[in-house]
Design a protein around this nucleic acid. Structure first.
Lengths: 226, 226
DNA sequence: TATATTTGTGTATAAATTACGCAATATGAA
DNA sequence: TTCATATTGCGTAATTTATACACAAATATA
């Protein structure tokens, strides 16, 4: 037998976050059958000379204009019947984008690519709902032992923002005071002079994730746990 | 552009365990270039109509005669230069086999497929060492929050056996008495009448993993943690 | 029968988690 | 200005979990 006729694609679940909106997911509307008109997660065929990550970033750029701030391989889906046309195996990734990059869709019509609230999703094409479920589960696990939550926030953020982010990701309440203590004890945040003015009560400090310090502590065997 | 010429393979790191030997890995000797004569992890091309898991099990059967007791997708490796011939993306799995299935190589010459002690490995072909490192890391993490360790043991096992298994996987000492208490408190082991005779000191009970009970407790929100 | 060896049980101490009280600092309305 | 309200920041008691280790029970062997 010659090499079997199997095609390889990459797909990406891209998560975005806004304090008021919660978690959102980036979707594209399909222009051609199968599933024409349905919403799907962005992705496409891998080119022969590009890496898998390059393929994901290229497809995201082409289809949505979004640049991710974090990208991680999720799982490969290879059920022979997952695409009604032919055998297509997809390597799924998930990505995170900053609030500030949230709005831009330079490359396409707003019609074709859109953010959806995580809990108000349309019916998706192919096995994309399954991939999304898998991605959310991974995100929930991963933020608990790797400091990737920051990738969904701006460079500067308040305790309230990151606390709320974790509540939204876990989908449950976390005691504000204990969360704060636990997070600060990790000793990977740099407290800034600036305070969050404008709000109702007492202003809180802005913080920045100190990646260098984190990497140093990680090497020394410290473990991030939230 | 037509569909790019990318081939898809599956590869599998297969772990075995024996109390005296510790962890072992199943390797095959390559018959053709590149890397002719080198040891490699078993694997091969995915057929058009088979699932990825079927492909892994078929290749394992063909190349080594081994049937795994547990199989889990690990990661997909797609660096464009990982194979010197052409673009080959591989979806790597890892598998676990019972001690009792450990010895059989029905399908091939003993020359072609062999178990190697984890810490006495030959130099491997392609990026297979990287895949192996990844698999070991995954195994170490996974046994701590999913009851898959049993898949490396016989149906019946003593406390000493599973304790030693965890020490070998983690590569560090664990207090025997605390390990026992923690494990029994999970309430997923069935204690059998039979005792382990023949040894030196006081005989210990045999246990069996009660999968039904585990699945029930898991549904109720219990979490396995060792 | 004595000794060595291994299993099984218990317990004291330390560390981490959880629940929650309250002062400090701001806004906005009376 | 003063008071009510909102939010941050700090602390502490109670509970749970983890760790270290003592010792009795059961067996093989010298």
């Amino acid at each position: 037998m010659a090499t079997p006729n199997i095609s390889l694609t990459v797909d990406a679940i891209v998560f975005g976050y806004e304090p008021k909106e919660g978690l959102s997911v980036l979707l594209v509307k399909r222009k051609y059958p199968p599933f024409k008109g349905r919403w799907a997660i962005p992705g496409g065929f891998v080119k022969e000379k590009e890496s898998l990550e390059q393929a994901v970033e290229r497809e995201l750029e082409e289809e949505t204009g979004v640049k991710v701030n974090y990208l991680e391989q999720l799982y490969s889906f290879g059920n022979p019947k997952r695409d009604p046309r032919s055998r297509i195996v997809t390597i799924a990734y998930y990505g995170l984008v900053r609030s500030s990059n949230f709005e831009l869709f330079a490359a396409t019509d707003a019609e074709d690519a859109q953010w959806f609230h995580l809990h108000e999703l349309p019916k998706l094409a192919f096995d994309h709902q399954k991939i999304l479920d898998y991605a959310l589960e991974r995100l929930q696990n991963k933020v608990s032992y790797q400091p990737i939550g920051f990738k969904l926030l701006n460079e500067k953020f308040t305790m309230e923002e990151i606390h709320h982010l974790y509540e939204v990701i876990y989908n449950r309440k976390l005691d504000r005071r204990n969360f704060r203590k636990k997070f600060l004890k990790l000793d990977i945040l740099e407290e800034l002079e600036e305070k969050s003015g404008g709000g109702r009560g007492r202003p809180g400090s802005y913080y920045r994730f100190d990646e260098k310090k984190y990497l140093k502590l990680e090497k020394e065997g410290m473990s991030f746990e939230v």
